[in-house]
Simulated scan of single mutants.
Amino acid sequence: MDVSVSDAKAQLTDLVRRAEEGEEIVLTRHGTPIARIAPVKKHLTPSQRRAILDEVRGTGTASYGDGTDAAHSQDFLYDEDGLPG
């Protein structure tokens, strides 16, 4: 929303309320943008950040396949002496 500085003087309380609700207001002078009234981003506490990281790390614990790793995935092709079977 664009508002001239002269109009913003009379509407400041309403413009701040709108910014609190998430709207961004651009102040203009003679149609040129000069300033912005915007909502302040909420900062997470360290414990909130830790909880998010723990949750994300927990989602990566799924295993895929039969549990065979790459080093042993072709063992069935060879006999006990390491020769093709």
Rank of each mutant, 00 (worst) to 15 (best):
Ser63Cys: 02
Leu83Ile: 08
Pro84Met: 07
Leu15Tyr: 01
Leu27Trp: 03
Ile25Ser: 05
Ala10Leu: 09
Tyr78Ser: 07
Leu83Gly: 02
Gly58Lys: 14
Ser4Gly: 14
Ile37Trp: 03
Thr28His: 09
Gln48Ile: 12
Glu80Arg: 14
His30Ala: 06
Tyr64Glu: 07
Ala8Met: 05
Ala19Gln: 05
Arg50Ser: 06
Ser63Thr: 13
Asp54Met: 09
Asp81Arg: 15
Asp79Lys: 12
Gln48Gly: 10
Thr13Gly: 10
Ala62Leu: 12
Asp69Tyr: 13
Arg29Ala: 11
Gln48Met: 14
Pro46Arg: 13
Gly82Ser: 04
Thr13Pro: 03
Asp79Glu: 06
Val5Leu: 14
Asp66Gly: 14
Arg18Tyr: 02
Arg49Glu: 07
Thr13Gln: 14
Ala8Gln: 13
Thr61Phe: 02
Ala71Trp: 11
Gly82Pro: 02
Glu20Ile: 08
Arg36Ile: 07
Lys42Val: 09
Thr59Gly: 08
Leu12Gly: 10
Gln48Asn: 07
Thr61Glu: 12
Leu27Phe: 06
Leu53Arg: 13
Asp14Cys: 00
Lys42Glu: 03
Arg17Met: 10
Arg57Lys: 10
Asp79Met: 04
Leu44Arg: 15
Gly67Thr: 07
Ala51Pro: 03
Leu44Cys: 03
Val3Leu: 06
Thr68Trp: 10
Ser63Tyr: 05
Ser4Cys: 00
Asp2Leu: 13
Gly65Leu: 05
Ala19Asn: 04
Gln48Lys: 15
Arg49Leu: 12
Leu53Tyr: 10
His72Leu: 04
Arg36Cys: 00
Ala70Ile: 15
Pro84Leu: 13
Val16Ile: 15
Tyr64Phe: 15
Ile25His: 06
Glu24Trp: 04
Tyr78Pro: 05
Val26Ala: 01
Leu15Asn: 06
Ala35Tyr: 01
Ala8Arg: 01
Leu53Cys: 07
Gly58Pro: 10
Ile25Arg: 03
Val40Tyr: 03
Ala70Ser: 06
Asp81Ile: 04
Arg18Ser: 00
Val16Met: 12
Asp66Arg: 14
Ile25Gln: 01
Gly82Phe: 08
His43Asp: 02
Val16Arg: 08
Thr68Pro: 00
Asp79Gln: 08
Val26Ile: 14
Tyr78Gly: 05
Thr28Leu: 08
Asp7Thr: 00
Val5Met: 04
Glu24Ser: 11
Leu27Gln: 03
Asp66Met: 12
Gly65Glu: 04
Ala19Leu: 09
Gln48Cys: 07
Leu83Asn: 15
Gly60Lys: 14
Asp66Asn: 15
Gly58Gln: 13
Arg50Cys: 01
Leu83Pro: 01
Pro84Trp: 05
His30Asn: 12
Arg50Lys: 14
Asp69Ile: 07
Glu80Gln: 13
Pro84Ile: 01
Ile52Asn: 03
Asp14Val: 09
Ala19Tyr: 06
Pro84Gln: 04
Tyr78Cys: 09
Leu44Asn: 08
Ala10His: 07
Ser4Glu: 01
Glu21Asp: 05
Ile34Val: 15
Pro39His: 05
Asp79Ile: 12
Gln74Cys: 04
Gly82Asn: 10
Lys9Met: 11
Gln74Ile: 01
Ser73Trp: 12
Ala51Phe: 10
Asp14Trp: 02
Glu23Phe: 07
Glu80Val: 08
Asp69Met: 08
Val3Ser: 02
Ala71Gln: 14
Val40Pro: 00
Thr28Trp: 11
